[in-house]
Amino acid sequence: MSIVRPYGDTTGDGMVQLSFTLPIPHDKRAEGAAVQLANKMGMDPALLVHARPMGDGFTFFVVYGKVSHLVDTEKVQVVERDYPLLSAKEVNATIKRRLRRRLNVVGACIGTDAHTVGIDAILNLKGIAGEKGLEYYSELSVTNMGAQVSVPDLVETARERKADAVLVSQVVTQRDAHLQNTRAMSAAFREALPAGKRPLLIVGGPRFDELMAGELGVDRIFSRGTTPREVASYLVHALVGSSS
């Protein structure tokens, strides 16, 4: 079945919930305005279930309602994992057999971003959700440059370490900093190194759109929920070839 509607408690009921704030004081008119917004968003009927004034001149609303929209799952565009998921053992064995040296990975948070939680989750031995980070893989040589690394420093370190892959994490998204930083980074690598010598460029962060890789000039984008094993498997797929 490729056509679906939201599910409240009955198939096909189309029910969704929505919360938002309007910059107006709470009164009858404000509630009407909230319903009007919900209607315009395709919720009809819209059931205003909660309205609460916040400070001077703001009201918070919760609306439940039925949407008429249908979604066609056939027409959804996503980046599906197009490489096999390998175990740590398989990753190490493949690199050893095919590359015959360790694969060099350099990771950093660039720009002013000080949130190392993402890069640390992927790189640190500790890893995330019970999965060990890339430092655990014996055939990966990992350099974690940490937070607030400048793009020139990153390029220099990548060159020095003969990086096969560069992993960049971006958490802060205010004023689209993550997109600007990523573009600056990929441009710097293009400028500094000829095509054949350029490391694989990978960015990750909770607010990236995985479809934007081409636009940002990187090879791959990883979004929220990515695990070290997925990244390691991708590295093998992209740099070493299949494990068979």
């Binding site: 720009g111 002013t112 971003d113 000080a114 949130h115 607030q148 802060v172 205010q174 004023r175 900093a177």
Partner: peptide
């Protein structure tokens, strides 16, 4: 603002743009 901790000076005046 993200990044202020690594500035080796204290910015001056009222400021209207910072990151996070």
């Amino acid at each position: 603002s993200t990044g202020q901790s690594l500035l080796d000076y204290v910015p001056e005046g009222a400021t209207r743009e910072g990151f996070a």
